[in-house]
Amino acid sequence: MQITVTLNGRRCTDEVAPDMTLYSYLRQKGCYSVKCGCETSSCGLCTVHFDGKPVLSCSMLAVRADGHSVTTLEGVEQEALEFGKFLADEGGEQCGFCSPGFIMNVLAMVKELPDPTDEQIKHYLAGNLCRCTGYQSHLRAIKKYLAAKQKEAVR
């Protein structure tokens, strides 16, 4: 099947199998930030933005992306790094394997929730598993990032 996808702002037309997942398609397109941690839609490592919304690329078929826009970490590198630096300054990336999916969901959250409480943050990100950190450093990083963003906005 032929699909045309706006991938990280670029129009791509490709031939894909009807049962190819969006995850496999994105890896094939060189978006190596997208990771797979399970096969049961449970871990959030494969999170990408689909028309701006966070989705599990492992659970979605590539054919569904036809005519839509898909963004991976590679497409928002500056934005990701802006938050990523806060994460790194807490030591909260650790092994880093869950970081891309986590960061993509953080970026989605920030767009959706203007001034989230700790509880809202935890709920929004509950679908992103991490085994290294115990999640505390994530929360610290997010709060510092949000505070810095707010400060910038005030300026």
Binding site: G44, P54, V55, L56, Y124
Partner: peptide, 12 residues
């Protein structure tokens, strides 16, 4: 709905 896996899952 809020307990079903995560936001990304529920968007799918």
């Amino acid at each position: 709905t809020e307990h079903i896996v995560g936001v990304q899952f529920r968007n799918c």
